[in-house]
Every structure is written in structure tokens, then in C-alpha cells.
């Protein structure tokens, strides 16, 4: 059975009652894990509270940071400071320079673009090629499609159709996330997968965008954040006296 992940559940950190209800709802809707965007300087106490909430409903908690850098240098600085603190790093690209840097940097997991301003969607063939080489995934926030007004939605779907086809051509994984911030903006994974139909994404690929693709990112990053990790394919098995034999 597939494990479904919603990597962008915007849980309000100031209202733990609502946070608890949202996480409970995610569990009831059939998600195995949720990614909660946290501010870079989040206290360990907040993280452990959220972890506890997720553990209580048997759901995997994934820490995520959303960066909105103004320049490529700012992105590099943010990555240097916070990459090892979060399991998933997402970059919202507002300029072409940031988009290119995010796509070629192996520390970036998800690249996303503003949903309303279609002119700021820089996911073209060059971007897709860079992202494919750096193992970055293309993130689609589904609630932005659902909540958009009619004309905005037409333009957004048109852009997404082209971008998803490019991602397919260059083998860039697509990740679907809800972007939900309330109980009424959450849907079952199967219902979200059906939204892929609106931009010509086949159902099996849409289901992968909610299960296999996010899970691959999480597994890869957890392995890297493990203290025993040295480099891809190399990890410490034993230390100290055990190694003398």
C-alpha cells in the first residue's frame, strides 16, 4: 500500500489547538506523513511539541524550511546556515537568478514558483535540466489551484501543463503538496491526485507525486542528516575501539 505524504501543511505554530486538529485531520484523510514549514529560528521546544502531536496520531513528522530569497547570494547564505537543521528545503523562486541557483544546488529539495504571477514562473527547459542533475523536485501547491479565481486558474493551469510536461521530459520529479492552512483546505490524497487531470498529468504519476517522490526526498535527506553519513554510498559502521580488530 502506498504511503502518502503532504510536504506542505501550513500548521499555525501560535495555535496548537488548531495545529492538533489539522494533524488529526491529515491522519484521518490517509496521510502517513506531513511536512510542516518552520521558521529558520524555530525553538527545539516547538519542534518537539509538533513531533509529539504527530506521534500521537501515528503520522511521520517532517521538518521543512521555506526560503524566499531575493538574490542567489542570499539563497547560498540561507543554505549554509540552515540546510542541516531541516529535513526538507523548499525555495520559492521570485527571480530567474534565484531559480537557476536553486535548481543547480544539490542542497535544495523543492523548487516552487508563485502561483498568481505567471510571469514569475521560470520553470523552462534550462531550469528543468539543472534541476534533474541536482536531484531537485518541482513542487506544485494544489490548494493554490483550487482557491484561484477563474481567470487566474486558467493561466495557472496553462503554465502547469507546460511545466509538468517539461518535468516529465527531463525526468524531474514532481511533488504535489496541499499548501493547506486550515481543515477545510485539506483533501484526501486520492482526491488531490485527481486534480492532476486538470493539467494533463496521468493518475499513476499524480499518485507518485504524493507518495514515492516525497518519500524519496525524505529518505535521502534523513540518511544525509544521520551522523554516520560521510558521503553518498559511504557511512560509518563502527567507531573507536571496535575498529581496532
Amino acid at each position: 500500500m502506498k504511503k502518502f505524504y503532504d510536504l506542505h501543511l501550513r500548521v499555525p505554530l501560535e495555535d496548537f489547538g488548531l495545529a492538533e486538529r489539522i494533524i488529526n485531520r491529515a491522519s484521518k484523510l490517509g496521510y502517513s506523513g506531513v511536512g510542516v514549514p518552520l521558521p529558520p529560528h524555530t525553538s527545539n521546544e516547538t519542534v518537539s511539541k509538533l513531533q509529539h502531536l504527530c506521534d500521537s496520531v501515528d503520522i511521520d513528522f517532517v521538518t521543512r524550511a521555506d526560503f524566499v530569497p531575493k538574490s542567489a547570494n542570499e539563497l547560498l547564505m540561507l543554505l549554509r546556515r540552515f540546510r542541516r537543521k531541516f529535513e526538507v528545503i523548499s525555495v520559492l523562486c521570485l527571480s530567474k537568478a534565484v531559480a537557476r541557483q536553486a535548481a543547480k544546488d544539490r542542497r535544495v529539495d523543492l523548487i516552487s514558483f508563485p502561483s498568481i504571477d505567471v510571469k514569475k514562473r521560470f520553470f523552462d527547459a534550462a531550469e528543468a535540466e539543472l534541476a534533474a542533475n541536482a536531484l531537485a523536485s518541482f513542487e506544485v501547491d494544489l490548494f493554490s489551484i483550487i482557491s484561484a479565481s477563474s481567470f487566474e486558474r486558467v493561466r495557472l493551469l496553462s503554465s502547469l501543463r507546460r511545466e509538468v510536461a517539461l518535468a516529465d521530459k527531463f525526468s524531474v520529479p514532481v511533488v504535489f503538496s496541499s499548501g493547506a492552512s486550515g481543515e477545510f483546505s485539506m483533501r484526501t490524497p486520492r482526491d488531490f491526485a485527481a486534480v492532476g487531470l486538470l493539467f494533463d498529468m496521468p493518475l499513476p504519476r499524480a499518485l507518485d507525486a504524493l507518495s514515492t517522490n516525497p518519500l524519496t526526498i525524505i529518505k535521502r535527506n534523513r540518511a544525509k542528516l544521520n551522523p554516520k553519513f560521510v558521503a553518498p554510498g559511504i557511512r560509518i559502521i563502527q567507531r573507536g575501539k571496535d575498529c581496532e580488530e
Binding site: I145, I146, S147, F184, S185, R187, R190, D191, F192, A194, V195, L197, L198, L203
Partner: peptide
């Protein structure tokens, strides 16, 4: 079926 699912999902 998928048309109906997509439509129902987009009801807010």
C-alpha cells in the same frame, strides 16, 4: 470518475 473527483476537490 476523475472529472467528478477533480471537480469535487475544487469545491471550497
Amino acid at each position: 470518475t476523475e472529472i467528478i473527483r477533480a471537480s469535487l476537490t475544487s469545491i471550497t
